Structure formats: C-alpha cells, structure tokens
Amino acid sequence: MSDKREPPKGQPIQSRVEPKGDGIRSMGATNVFRVVNFELFVKPNKYAMSAGVCALTLCFGYIFYMNYKARADPSTYIALNEDETQTIQRRQSKWQ
C-alpha cells in the first residue's frame, strides 16, 4: 500500500487553488468586462460608498427641488398637446 492518496477516477484534478472569499475576482475576465463591471472587482470601501451616497442624495434632492419650483411657479402651467402628451409651458399673457 502506498501512502499517497490518489483522487477518484473520473473527477478532474484542481490545478489551481483559489483563496476563499474572492468570488468573481478570482475568475479570469477580460479588461473590458472589468471596466464595465467595476464594482464586482473592487473591494468595498466605506469612504467611497459614503461619498457616492451623499452625491446620489444631493442629485435626488436637486431634482425634487427643481420639480417643486416648477410646480410652485405661477407663470407656468401644464398643457395638453394634440397628440395627448403633457408639456409645461409659460403663460403668454397675464390675463389667462
């Protein structure tokens, strides 16, 4: 009897052992895939995440602010076009 253990026949031998926890980072991928799916290959960073959350919050806040100002402005109104789409238009006359 020999001391070496042989793998069972019919099963491939793993030539490369991946460290646990690397996930998709350990897969072979093209540079284009890595650029397009950047967040899959970068380790989480709390500072970058907090900056992104702040930037996204400011963007949404600005959009809501512009929407509020457009609705509160008495010189604009929502008009229904002939093709049944709605647009915001400025009033042409103060009598209307």
Rank of each mutant, 00 (worst) to 15 (best):
L80W: 05
E18M: 15
T76W: 05
I63Q: 10
Q96Y: 06
K43Q: 10
N45E: 06
G28C: 01
E82K: 10
F33P: 00
A48K: 08
D3R: 06
I24H: 05
N67H: 08
R5I: 11
E82S: 10
M49I: 05
I63T: 05
R34V: 02
V35S: 02
K20L: 09
K43M: 06
M66N: 06
E39T: 05
K46Y: 00
R90A: 12
F60A: 08
S75Q: 11
G61A: 07
C54M: 09
N45Y: 01
A79E: 12
D83C: 12
S50F: 00
L58E: 02
G52K: 09
P8A: 11
D22R: 07
G23Y: 01
G21S: 03
K69Y: 04
K9W: 10
Y77L: 14
P8F: 09
A70M: 15
A70E: 13
P19F: 09
S75D: 11
G52N: 14
E39K: 14
L58Q: 07
N45S: 12
P44Y: 04
Q86Y: 13
R34N: 03
A29M: 00
G52H: 11
I24N: 02
T85W: 13
A48L: 12
G61F: 04
M1D: 13
P74S: 05
G52M: 12
A55E: 06
N37F: 04
G28A: 04
V53I: 15
L58N: 05
T85L: 13
Q11D: 08
D3Q: 09
F38V: 00
P12E: 12
D22M: 09
I24Q: 04
M49T: 07
M1N: 12
A70K: 10
D73S: 07
F41D: 00
V36G: 00
P12Y: 06
Y47P: 00
V53L: 14
N81P: 09
P7N: 10
S75K: 13
D83V: 09
M49G: 04
T57K: 07
V32T: 05
